[in-house]
Amino acid sequence: MNDQKNLLSIKNLTIHYKTGGNIVHAVDNLDLDLGHGETLGFVGETGAGKTTTALGIMGLIPNPPGKIINGQVFFKGEDLLKKKHKEMRSIRGKEIAMIFQDPMTSLDPVMNVGDQIAEMIRIHEQITKDKALEKAEVMLETVGIRKDRSKDYPHQFSGGMKQRVGIAIALACNPKLIIADEPTTALDVTIQAQVLELMKSLKEKYDTSMILITHDLGIVAEICDKVAIMYAGNVVEYSDKNSLYLNPLHPYTNGLFQSIPDIEKDVDKLNTIKGLAPDPTNLPKGCTFHPRCPKALPVCSEKKPDNVMVEPNHYVKCFLYN
């Protein structure tokens, strides 16, 4: 029912990695929805499972050691996890494309950028090489690079320009969904502002949905419509952006906001979340956040909290709101 309304709908996704004798619970029973044309900010710290979720959607979990244990990923109403390898290959790049974190390593250093964009186009469209190269040049201009640079190699570009090439490749086949994995983390702040501005305008132009993986709540505030806060492999809070920023509910979300130095206020001491993120091979019982939670109740260490709708479109997994 939900599946028609939403472009992407993830249900009970569980992904494990096996390392030695241990099982890493990278993603644990994750639910997530994304509507047409929406941008979802996917926020969490290192190791929260953000990238693993993205790879799960793309069908790119390295197996072994990784394995999707359970769940469904509905994209345009169809379960991607039931697709055959060949079918997934025609979806990746064409329907769902990815922008990677590090433009220094995600491009092929021995292939000029025009060819790299054209490669993507020729995999998915039946056109001649010349036509594909022409299209690649148009894409370069769309992302603000002169087309006469299409014969240049990645090392001849700056970091920001390389990330523009990455965006051009992702957009080349006009995908319905873009997963951008920390696209500006490796860039300087003024270059980051350029790239975010570009992504915002292109997203509108092509009417693409986007999942933006980031650890920066500032970037989410700027370009997302919805936010999912991820902790230890699970979404602990999911909401419209305004509702989350004006009224963060989960103690972890509150902790995150308070850890960021505020430009407009002076404080002597930052509030911190005590302790460290849990070991994913040995997650705490009950709510995974309870050992660090300042408001933990006795029940938190026994049962897993349900997803509660506190306001319309604002969900939280926490016993404080049950």
Binding site: A193, L196, D216, L217, G218, A221, E222, N242, Y245
Partner: peptide, 11 residues
């Protein structure tokens, strides 16, 4: 430089 900092606030 200052205007380019993403600020974690809405409105």
């Amino acid at each position: 430089l200052l205007s380019a900092i993403p600020i974690p606030k809405v409105n």
